[in-house]
């Protein structure tokens, strides 16, 4: 092998090794960090694993939000109009959080079937729900009829 070819071989090998290490690391990191989404029905039927980071989404049940009087702990129920799941969360809820609205919570299911949320997301405006929630509601056949037009409300 000429020195020039040798040099090229070294470069190509270095790139190959680098890329395969990167791909390996990526796949490993990905497998550790994907959060699956479950609907309340799936959770109630025991399809969701406990003590694993998952996402749960649905509509917040009207009248179910209970605030603790001396801390920021809050408890509410999440429904897809089929089943409901109790959720506990400590902290500040997003501005768009309201009873009767769709939200997605990130957290894990404890042994008592209570969803311990570490993050509550409500990334939508008032006549729009997160796509996961919309799909879960459609799956359970409980999709509410959409609200009126945005304009002139």
């Amino acid at each position: 092998m000429t020195p020039k070819r040798k040099q090229r071989l070294v470069i190509v090998l270095a790139i190959l090794v680098g890329v395969s290490v990167a791909v390996g690391l990526t796949l490993f990191a990905l497998s550790q960090n994907i959060n699956l989404f479950y609907s309340p029905t799936q959770i109630a039927q025991g399809e969701a694993p406990t003590d694993t980071r998952i996402r749960a989404g649905g509509m917040v049940v009207e009248g179910s939000v209970e605030r603790s009087t001396d801390s920021l702990q809050v408890r509410f129920e999440l429904t897809d109009y089929g089943e409901t799941v109790p959720v506990e969360y400590t902290g500040i809820l997003p501005d768009l959080f309201r009873e009767g609205q769709g939200i997605v919570a990130q957290g894990s299911l404890d042994g008592n079937g209570v969803f311990q949320a570490v993050e509550v997301l409500a990334k939508h405006d008032e006549n729009y729900m997160p796509p996961e929630v919309a799909e879960a509601l459609q799956a359970s056949g409980k999709m509410p009829t959409p609200e009126a037009e945005v304009f002139n409300k």
Binding site: L25, A29, L30, Q32, N33, I34, N35, L36, R55, E135
Partner: peptide, 16 residues
């Protein structure tokens, strides 16, 4: 299935 990839994935690769 519906999944999301969290910031830890990005951080653990981006930083090194």
């Amino acid at each position: 299935g519906k999944i999301s990839v969290g910031p830890p994935y990005f951080n653990s690769l981006f930083i090194p």
